[in-house]
């Protein structure tokens, strides 16, 4: 029997001998992973909805009155030649008024009061990676075009959107760090309790000639197994929760959110969760490792 097989066999025996303590550790890891996984799940779906709502950055260039088709075409070419502009579409004032009427709920045929004042417009779609600074520079540049009277990229909304995304992302990292540290602390305490309960065993095993590794290896294996089981359980619960609540949310909120399909965690996120579960449990194990190592000095 190899050293690793022996260690796993002893770990399995330890699991059978102290089932409640191990269950407590697994539950703690699982609860932490559920919180983190839930956050990742919400974040992923938020991003999905946000992308569906407004996949690209758009803006509007308001044009002077009475431009010829040739002038519009020339302007369109010049705009498309700009670095950050991906797509340009011309909309005459009639079409703008019709779209506004549809948005307001009246039929397209009716005459909207004041619609004769609307200008023709160019709708601009920018590349996703265009920064706020690039937009400001582009606005300045386009304002100099003789055919354009005003440019509006709704930068405020964009800035807010980016801020929210940044906040969520930052919050995610802070939460992740807090969870790993918090859970490690709790698990280290559980491990400490287990260590206390096995203190006598460790002493006895030392007295009959056990090497340091013989005593300590099972703690590390226990950490790996607990981490994987805890993270796996958390993913199972999250999947069940998504299945249970997914339909309900979809029925009630599809119209508002614009989507009826809910995403589960990506492979990378699932791997991250498994890694965090294992890292948390191992951190707990190593705490016991060093606590126990003290006893050997």
């Amino acid at each position: 029997m190899g050293t690793r097989t022996r260690a796993i066999s002893r770990t399995w025996k330890n699991f059978k001998r102290h089932p409640l303590l191990h269950l407590a550790s697994i539950s703690t890891i699982s609860a932490s992973c559920i919180i983190l996984g839930g956050f990742l799940l919400c974040s992923r779906n938020f991003q999905n909805i946000a992308e569906k709502t407004n996949p690209n950055i758009t803006g509007t260039a308001y044009l002077r009155e009475n431009l010829s088709d040739y002038q519009v075409s020339q302007l369109k070419d010049r705009l498309l030649a700009q670095n950050h502009i991906m797509k340009v579409s011309f909309k005459p004032k009639k079409k703008v008024a019709d779209e506004l009427q549809i948005f307001l709920g009246s039929s397209a045929g009716e005459v909207l009061p004041g619609s004769e004042l609307f200008p023709d417009i160019m709708e601009l779609e920018l590349h996703k990676d265009t920064s706020t600074g690039d937009i400001a520079a582009l606005t300045k540049l386009l304002s100099r075009e003789p055919e354009i009277t005003e440019v509006d990229f709704s930068e405020d909304w964009l800035a807010q959107y980016k801020k929210v995304r940044g906040l969520i992302s930052g919050l995610g990292w802070v939460l992740m760090l807090a969870l790993v540290l918090g859970c490690s602390f709790i698990i280290a305490n559980f491990m400490g309790m287990r260590h206390q309960s096995r203190k006598e065993e460790i002493e006895i095993v030392q007295l009959i000639g056990a090497e340091r590794s013989f005593v300590l290896t099972p703690f590390v294996w226990e950490g790996v197994i607990e981490g994987l089981l805890g993270a796996g359980l958390a993913m199972g619960i999250l999947l069940f929760g998504k299945w249970l609540l997914g339909d309900l949310i979809a029925n009630e909120w599809t119209a508002v959110l614009g989507t009826s399909s809910w995403l589960f965690l990506s492979i990378e996120q699932m791997l991250l969760l498994a890694f965090i579960g294992m890292a948390t449990a191992l951190l707990g194990s190593f705490t016991v490792f060093f606590k126990t190592a003290e006893r050997f000095r």
């Binding site: 006598e200 065993e201 002493e203 006895i204 030392q206 007295l207 009959i208 000639g209 090497e211 340091r212």
Partner: peptide, 18 residues
């Protein structure tokens, strides 16, 4: 020490059984 203890047996008053 662990190697040495494999050569010597020790019986305790309180048995020290698991």
């Amino acid at each position: 020490i662990y190697q040495y203890r494999r050569e010597v047996g020790f019986v305790f008053q309180d048995f020290k059984l698991l």
